[in-house]
Simulated assay, not measured.
Amino acid sequence: MTKAGGVRTLPSEPAQARRFGRVRDAQATALLEDYVELIADLLADAGEARLVDIARRMGVAHPTAAKTINRLKRQGLAMSEPYRGIFLTEIGMQMAERARVRHRLVVRVLETLGVPTDVAEADAEGMEHYVSDVTGRAFMKFIDAYGQFGTIS
């Protein structure tokens, strides 16, 4: 918020607390979204999602990946069967799809702004978790208005 003359003022305490709370919520789910999105991709590509492959692709140690997979299971997002790898529940599949849609949307916005695709893909990995539905709809309107004309430079 700004006063006349461009001096910045703090938002009200409740408004600021809501903003920070939203960021904390997004941070808490970001890791889970990354894992379910990767599991869905591995299942679609290779027909299986093994813990060793998940750990490698996430760039983490095997025990770290196992801990997160157990968290996914506790939250009803994933399941596993002996000797068969990791699978997503219906809720996990829905979470993966929402994350994938937000990721693609952020990539498209960045590309429309003139960001190279490889950079847009990397930047979208973090940004996708913080895009609200309201912002997502605004992004879609932006892409509809400007995306058809190439990039804005």
Rank of each mutant, 00 (worst) to 15 (best):
M1L: 09
M1I: 04
K3P: 00
K3C: 04
G5M: 07
G5C: 06
G6P: 07
T9R: 11
L10W: 03
S12V: 00
A17M: 00
R18W: 00
F20L: 03
R22Q: 02
D25G: 01
D25K: 06
A28W: 01
A30G: 01
L32T: 02
L32P: 01
E37G: 09
L38K: 00
D41E: 06
D45N: 09
D45I: 05
A46S: 14
E48Y: 06
L51C: 06
V52F: 07
D53W: 09
R57H: 10
V60H: 07
V60Q: 10
V60P: 06
V60C: 11
A61C: 09
H62C: 01
P63C: 10
A65L: 10
K67N: 10
T68V: 15
I69S: 01
I69P: 03
N70F: 11
N70E: 09
L72R: 02
R74G: 08
G76V: 14
M79C: 13
S80L: 06
P82H: 14
P82Y: 14
Y83F: 14
R84D: 08
F87L: 11
F87Q: 06
L88T: 11
T89E: 03
I91E: 10
M93H: 13
M95I: 09
E97C: 02
A99Y: 05
A99N: 12
R100G: 08
R100T: 11
R100S: 11
R104A: 12
L105Y: 00
L105T: 03
L105N: 01
V106M: 07
R108E: 13
R108C: 09
R108S: 13
E111T: 15
T112N: 06
T112Q: 08
G114L: 13
G114N: 12
V115W: 08
T117E: 07
D118E: 12
E121L: 12
A122L: 14
D123H: 04
E125T: 11
E125M: 05
G126L: 11
H129A: 10
H129E: 06
Y130N: 07
V131T: 04
V134H: 13
T135W: 04
F142T: 03
D144S: 12
A145C: 07
Y146K: 14
T151D: 09
